Measured scan of single mutants.
Amino acid sequence: AFSSEQLARLKREFNENRYLTERRRQQLSSELGLNEAQIKIWFQNKRA
């Protein structure tokens, strides 16, 4: 489960760009304390 802070950040990123570069995913992973797979799957689900 994502914290409300993490979700807000993911939604902001998604609004700016529906697709993440690998580098951006790595940055978000480290900033949010999530693993890259969690972020990747969140974006895939959000696009679906």
Rank of each mutant, 00 (worst) to 15 (best):
1 A>V: 12
1 A>W: 13
1 A>F: 12
1 A>C: 13
1 A>I: 12
1 A>K: 12
1 A>G: 13
1 A>D: 12
1 A>L: 12
2 F>D: 01
2 F>R: 01
2 F>Q: 03
2 F>E: 02
2 F>C: 04
2 F>L: 12
2 F>Y: 07
3 S>A: 04
3 S>V: 03
3 S>Q: 04
3 S>D: 06
4 S>A: 14
4 S>M: 12
4 S>T: 12
4 S>N: 12
5 E>V: 08
5 E>R: 07
5 E>Q: 09
5 E>F: 08
5 E>G: 07
6 Q>T: 07
6 Q>M: 06
6 Q>V: 12
6 Q>F: 02
6 Q>P: 01
6 Q>G: 02
7 L>Y: 05
7 L>N: 05
7 L>H: 05
7 L>G: 02
7 L>W: 03
7 L>T: 06
8 A>P: 00
8 A>G: 06
8 A>Q: 09
8 A>L: 09
9 R>W: 05
9 R>Y: 06
9 R>A: 11
9 R>L: 06
9 R>H: 06
9 R>G: 07
9 R>N: 04
10 L>Q: 00
10 L>S: 00
10 L>R: 01
10 L>W: 00
11 K>N: 15
11 K>G: 10
11 K>E: 15
11 K>Q: 15
11 K>M: 15
11 K>F: 13
11 K>R: 14
12 R>P: 00
12 R>D: 10
12 R>L: 10
12 R>K: 14
12 R>S: 10
12 R>W: 10
13 E>Y: 05
13 E>D: 03
13 E>F: 04
13 E>K: 02
14 F>Q: 02
14 F>R: 02
14 F>L: 03
14 F>W: 11
15 N>I: 09
15 N>A: 14
15 N>S: 12
15 N>E: 15
15 N>Q: 13
15 N>G: 08
16 E>N: 10
16 E>C: 13
16 E>G: 05
16 E>I: 11
16 E>P: 01
17 N>K: 05
17 N>Q: 05
17 N>P: 02
17 N>E: 04
17 N>A: 04
17 N>S: 09
17 N>G: 05
17 N>L: 04
18 R>L: 03
18 R>H: 10
18 R>N: 10
18 R>Y: 06
18 R>Q: 13
18 R>W: 09
19 Y>N: 08
19 Y>D: 07
19 Y>A: 05
19 Y>S: 06
19 Y>R: 07
19 Y>M: 07
19 Y>P: 04
19 Y>V: 10
19 Y>F: 13
20 L>M: 06
20 L>Q: 02
20 L>S: 02
20 L>Y: 02
20 L>H: 03
20 L>E: 04
20 L>P: 15
20 L>N: 02
20 L>G: 02
20 L>T: 03
21 T>M: 03
21 T>K: 03
21 T>G: 08
21 T>L: 03
21 T>C: 07
21 T>V: 03
21 T>A: 04
21 T>N: 08
22 E>A: 15
22 E>H: 13
22 E>N: 13
22 E>K: 15
22 E>P: 15
23 R>V: 12
23 R>Q: 14
23 R>E: 14
23 R>L: 12
23 R>N: 13
23 R>A: 15
24 R>C: 05
24 R>Q: 09
24 R>I: 07
24 R>D: 05
24 R>V: 08
24 R>W: 03
24 R>F: 05
24 R>N: 04
25 R>I: 15
25 R>K: 10
25 R>P: 02
25 R>W: 11
25 R>V: 15
25 R>A: 15
25 R>L: 15
26 Q>L: 12
26 Q>T: 08
26 Q>K: 14
26 Q>N: 07
26 Q>W: 07
26 Q>V: 10
26 Q>H: 09
26 Q>F: 08
27 Q>E: 13
27 Q>T: 09
27 Q>F: 08
27 Q>P: 02
27 Q>I: 11
27 Q>W: 09
27 Q>M: 11
27 Q>V: 10
28 L>M: 04
28 L>C: 02
29 S>Y: 03
29 S>I: 05
29 S>M: 06
29 S>W: 03
29 S>H: 03
29 S>Q: 05
29 S>D: 01
29 S>C: 07
30 S>M: 14
30 S>L: 15
30 S>H: 13
30 S>Q: 14
30 S>A: 14
30 S>G: 07
31 E>T: 04
31 E>C: 06
31 E>H: 03
31 E>K: 04
31 E>V: 05
31 E>I: 06
32 L>K: 00
32 L>S: 02
32 L>H: 01
32 L>P: 00
32 L>T: 09
32 L>C: 03
33 G>P: 01
33 G>Q: 06
33 G>V: 03
33 G>H: 06
34 L>Y: 01
34 L>I: 12
34 L>F: 02
34 L>W: 02
34 L>M: 07
34 L>H: 01
34 L>P: 00
35 N>M: 09
35 N>C: 07
35 N>L: 10
36 E>S: 07
36 E>R: 03
36 E>C: 06
36 E>I: 08
36 E>Q: 07
36 E>D: 07
36 E>G: 07
36 E>F: 05
36 E>P: 11
36 E>L: 05
36 E>W: 05
37 A>I: 13
37 A>N: 13
37 A>H: 13
37 A>Y: 13
37 A>K: 10
37 A>W: 15
37 A>F: 12
37 A>T: 13
38 Q>L: 14
38 Q>N: 05
38 Q>K: 06
38 Q>D: 14
38 Q>C: 11
38 Q>M: 13
38 Q>Y: 08
39 I>K: 01
39 I>W: 03
39 I>G: 00
39 I>P: 00
39 I>A: 01
39 I>Y: 01
39 I>E: 00
40 K>R: 12
40 K>Y: 13
40 K>Q: 15
40 K>F: 14
40 K>L: 15
40 K>V: 15
40 K>C: 14
41 I>Q: 15
41 I>P: 00
41 I>E: 15
41 I>T: 10
41 I>M: 13
42 W>E: 00
42 W>Y: 07
42 W>F: 07
42 W>M: 02
42 W>I: 03
42 W>A: 02
42 W>V: 02
42 W>Q: 01
42 W>K: 01
42 W>H: 01
43 F>H: 00
43 F>C: 03
43 F>T: 00
43 F>E: 02
44 Q>W: 09
44 Q>I: 08
44 Q>E: 15
44 Q>M: 09
44 Q>R: 11
44 Q>P: 02
44 Q>A: 13
45 N>Q: 13
45 N>C: 14
45 N>D: 09
45 N>W: 14
45 N>V: 09
46 K>D: 03
46 K>V: 09
46 K>S: 13
46 K>Y: 14
46 K>G: 06
46 K>A: 15
46 K>N: 11
46 K>R: 15
47 R>N: 13
47 R>T: 08
47 R>C: 11
47 R>M: 13
47 R>V: 10
48 A>W: 08
48 A>Y: 08
48 A>G: 08
48 A>E: 11
48 A>I: 10
